[in-house]
């Protein structure tokens, strides 16, 4: 891997599994934006026997750094070990664990759904309810886009399944800590390392 040019890189597809399962934890990992960093992170996970559930990568506002949002499958190891091992990578600058309950999370879904004259309006109605966008229209197909929480994406997927999903693609989530009601930010510290 030579750069973090693409905005989101899906690593593994949820495949209908509940994405909000309790065994999943979200790590927000600030790394140096250098060649090979993603390979190092990915290899560390596989070599230590941890499972990456999803992974999203993009440069931060400071392009010397990138942020990885990693959803880890915690059945494979303790979060503490994963975090400590990740910290040993020279290019990893900061790791923040994001508690899904105290975070805003978004993920993007693209789906091609088969339609006929009759189902089209039902699908469009569903899309409307969920706030999904229609990106492309064919004679017997619709391409929909939905950006929302992973749970909403699960629900939406469940509902459009009945119409026949031709293809579906999810990006893996990105997450930020919820803003504290008293005004100051909690959780993720921004961008650059101290």
């Amino acid at each position: 891997m030579t750069s973090f040019g693409t905005s989101v890189i899906p690593m593994s597809m949820p495949g209908g599994k509940n994405t909000s399962g309790v065994s999943h934890h979200v790590l927000s990992v600030l790394v140096e934006n250098k060649a090979g960093v993603l390979a190092r992170v990915a290899q560390l996970f596989s070599r230590r026997g941890y499972n990456i559930y999803s992974l999203a990568v993009a440069p931060t506002d400071d392009e010397n750094f990138s942020r990885l949002t990693v959803v880890v499958d915690l059945e494979s190891a303790t979060l503490e070990q994963i975090t400590k091992q990740l910290h040993k990578l020279i290019n990893v600058i900061k790791i923040t664990e994001i508690n899904p309950l105290e975070a805003v999370q978004q993920e993007l879904l693209l789906a091609i759904v088969s339609t006929d004259a009759q189902s089209r309006s039902q699908i469009l109605e569903l899309a409307d309810i969920f706030g999904a966008k229609v990106l492309d229209v064919g004679l017997e197909r619709l391409t929909l886009a939905l950006a929302d929480s992973p749970e909403k994406l699960d629900d939406f997927t469940e509902l459009i399944k009945g119409f026949g999903i031709v293809e579906i693609q999810r990006t893996g989530r990105v997450a930020l800590a919820k803003l504290s009601r008293s005004g100051s930010r909690s959780g993720i510290t921004k961008g650059k390392a101290s």
Binding site: A35, G36, A39, R40, Q43, L44, K88, I90
Partner: peptide, 16 residues
């Protein structure tokens, strides 16, 4: 070489 030795070095560098 950097790929092969990634998990058995503390760090490695490919000089560009």
């Amino acid at each position: 070489t950097t790929g092969i030795t990634m998990s058995i070095t503390k760090h490695n560098w490919l000089v560009k």
